[in-house]
Amino acid sequence: MITLRAHPCAPAPGRLCESPVWDNRTGELLWVDIRGGHIHRAELDRATLDLTHRSTVSLTPPVSAVVPCASGSLLATVGDTFYLIDGDGTATPIAAIPFPDDGIRRRLNDAKVDPHGRLLAGTMSEDGVQGSAALYRLDSDGALSILRDGVTISNGLDWSPDGTVLYYVDSPTKRVDAFEYDIATGTFGNGKPFARFENGEPDGLTVDGEGWVWVAVWGVGQVHAFDPTGHRRVIIEVGPSQVSSCVFAGPDLDVLVITTAAEGKAAGEPGAGRLFACVPGAVGLQATPYSDTRLVRSDGR
């Protein structure tokens, strides 16, 4: 087992930082502060492993995830709605989830684009009501489909390098599951447990070019890396307990950037809510942008 340590980055801490993604076209890191409703951009200095904040777009919270689009815009998940964000910060709704009127406070949570350019986005209840959430697929024309229901807190997801395996987290299960994924149809079939966690809960995750799965572990202040067979090989000590997600960033995709949160009792922890970085000796996969070319927008563009 290899143990590494991540180092804090310069941007100011947020309340619940999540959804880091490297935008290869702009050479910038994107991430959100869910509670603040912020979408941040920063430039990465590979020599110092530090981030320099560049800009922020603020929307009505919660803003749970952001991904680049093929058009150059951004796609953000906000409450129950998917928004297209133009370069000037204009937000245009393109689809909304029809949550049932049953008194359960639901919202969108983690999201990521599959190898074919479709967005997979999960939901959760703010009160952790068991089985009240789901995983959805947003197609390139804005059509929504339910891929999996009976979920409690839909969280991290990513694909194997060949796109045939979807790694997926429903956090309270304390495991990462691996599902057979059909790239052509955007559906998944048989699944099995891939990695289990005795301490903490798995949150966001990313897959590197060799098929290793890097998982942020909420509650224990660490990122764990598993080889493709599911064996834990690396532990990265981050510091603050609420480690929320991670992504490979930089021109060579060799810097692991890690987001954290400062929720509840963790608000007083040193470094809580900051971003952290380290070089773990792995190279990530370039993110696929959301294919928004078939969207019919309300402004006619």
Results as ranks from 00 to 15, higher is better:
Q242E: 15
G230V: 01
E210Q: 12
S145N: 09
F226A: 04
P161F: 03
A225G: 11
G239K: 11
D149V: 04
L157D: 06
V165K: 06
G142V: 03
G156W: 13
L135T: 06
A133P: 10
T187Y: 12
G219K: 14
G209W: 01
I235N: 05
V238P: 11
E180P: 02
G239E: 11
G189Q: 06
D227F: 01
G219I: 12
E198W: 00
L166M: 12
V207W: 12
L166C: 05
P193G: 04
S171N: 07
F194V: 09
Q242L: 12
V238T: 08
S154F: 03
F197G: 05
D139P: 03
F226P: 05
S160H: 03
G131R: 15
S241C: 12
S154A: 05
Y167M: 03
G230R: 02
V215Q: 10
N155V: 02
L205C: 12
L135S: 05
T229Y: 03
F194C: 08
R233T: 10
G128F: 14
Y167E: 06
S132Q: 09
V220P: 00
G209T: 00
A195H: 04
L144C: 13
T185E: 14
Y167P: 04
H231M: 01
T152M: 02
G219R: 14
A143K: 15
F197C: 08
G239C: 13
G128I: 07
F197T: 08
D170Q: 09
L138N: 13
G200Y: 09
V165H: 05
V169P: 00
P193H: 00
D162I: 04
E198V: 02
A216C: 07
G211N: 03
I236F: 02
V215Y: 07
S241V: 09
Y136E: 07
T164Q: 14
